[in-house]
Amino acid sequence: MFQNTPFIIAELSGNHDQDFELAKSMIHAAAKAGVDAIKLQTYKPETMTLDIRHGEFMVSEENSLWRGNNLYDLYAKASTPWEWHQPLFELANSLGLVAFSSPFDLSAVDFLETLDVPLYKIASFELTDIPLIQAVARTGKPMIMSTGMASKKEIQEAIAAVRGIGDNPLILLKCTSTYPAKIEDTNLVTMNDLAGFTGCSVGLSDHTQGLAAAVAATALGATVIEKHFVLDRSAGGVDSAFSMEPDEMADLVSACRAAKASLGAVTYGGSDSEQASKKYRRSIYVAADLDAGTVLSEQHLQIIRPSYGLEPKHWPDVLGKTLKADAKKGQPLTWDMMA
């Protein structure tokens, strides 16, 4: 399944604006951009929150994209109708994409199992929902879990919930759960620590604007990159502010693939393609026409390119040596020319 590394996921989220044709267009555009997978979110507003319109059921954070919204209405707007899932998954599969979802409650897991999804994603806000994690683990399928906001203890508890059920393949994503996330809050070096204390493969769920964090994460060994996707930011969409448009997603895919390719393997002495370039290193050459018997001095020799003469490190050793035979200007100096 994860033939490409990093495995790049386009998250449709609620950017389809409840328009089925738009959702299909997004999948076509994501495939054209070169991603490996598309992901939906599976929930209903009534399984996310209560329909209460005051107090903590309102988004109140000053810097939130959704400030002033009632949670129930927000989730209703952002949700993907369940009857869309099968045709969208089938469309994605027909275009060569892996298609899966993030379930947000037990009924969503049951529903997604009827569609035989190949893997599951646990969202960062659900990482402490141990019953949900256990339900997904019981499917036996690969799991991706975002770790935004989670402490080490909470991450370990989530992993233990999985391992208490089975040995599902498990990938953990570094995630900054602000929308959009500031690049300076991404703290990508956490990925290596996350891999170290969990023993899991790691990746990035990226809510920053642009592709820098995704490329940097790839260079640090990310096996999965998840990025929100939208056809046109200016047209709106609940997550449009931190989502990538098709051309940008194509650039991200290309840049991440290039970053991965650039890592290569530990290599010294030059790659195979570099060997021909070694001729343009410097070496010691005869810098004037010289007669046999000449005692070599700095006036007779020069360290220049190319590299067919003795290496520059032998400069002190050749000064004061005597030529055995005549030498021409431009002749590489070799040991057999000297007495």
Rank of each mutant, 00 (worst) to 15 (best):
A292T: 00
A259S: 06
T267V: 08
P312H: 11
D291H: 09
I303S: 01
A292S: 03
T334N: 04
Q302M: 13
L263P: 01
Q299A: 14
A261P: 02
D289L: 06
L296V: 05
A255T: 09
G330H: 10
T322P: 03
L252W: 04
D251T: 14
T267L: 11
D317G: 11
V295A: 04
R257C: 04
E248F: 15
A265S: 11
P306L: 08
R305L: 10
A261W: 13
V253P: 00
T267W: 10
S271D: 08
A261K: 14
T294R: 00
W335T: 04
H300G: 01
P306A: 09
A287C: 01
K260V: 02
G264E: 08
S262T: 07
H300K: 01
G330C: 10
A327Y: 03
A327N: 01
D291Q: 13
S307I: 11
L301V: 02
L310Y: 10
E274P: 03
D336C: 12
R281P: 00
V253T: 02
L252S: 00
H300W: 06
I304Y: 13
G270W: 10
T334H: 12
Q302E: 12
S297L: 02
D291S: 14
K260F: 05
V286L: 02
V318R: 02
A255I: 14
L319A: 06
R281E: 03
P332C: 07
K313W: 15
P316A: 08
G269P: 02
K324R: 05
Q331G: 10
V286Y: 02
V295E: 02
A261T: 07
Y308G: 07
L319P: 03
Y285M: 05
A292V: 06
G320Q: 07
K313N: 06
K260N: 09
A287I: 03
E248T: 09
Q275S: 05
D247V: 15
L296I: 05
D336T: 08
S307V: 09
P312W: 15
Q275Y: 04
S277N: 11
Q302H: 13
E274R: 06
M337H: 01
Y268T: 13
V318F: 11
M249C: 11
Q299K: 07
R282C: 00
S297Y: 01
H300E: 04
S283C: 03
D336N: 10
E274V: 04
G293D: 01
P312L: 14
R257L: 06
L290Q: 02
L301E: 02
G309H: 12
T294C: 01
A327V: 15
D317V: 11
T322S: 07
V286D: 00
A250S: 13
K328Y: 13
M338H: 00
G309A: 09
G269C: 08
G270T: 01
A288L: 04
K328H: 08
K279V: 13
S254R: 13
V286K: 00
W315M: 06
G264P: 06
E274N: 03
P312F: 14
A287W: 11
V295S: 01
A258F: 15
D289H: 06
W335F: 14
D326G: 10
D317N: 13
Q299M: 07
P316K: 12
V266C: 07
E274S: 08
Q331L: 14
I304L: 11
D317I: 14
V286W: 03
E298Q: 03
T334P: 06
R281H: 05
M337L: 09
A261V: 08
Y308H: 14
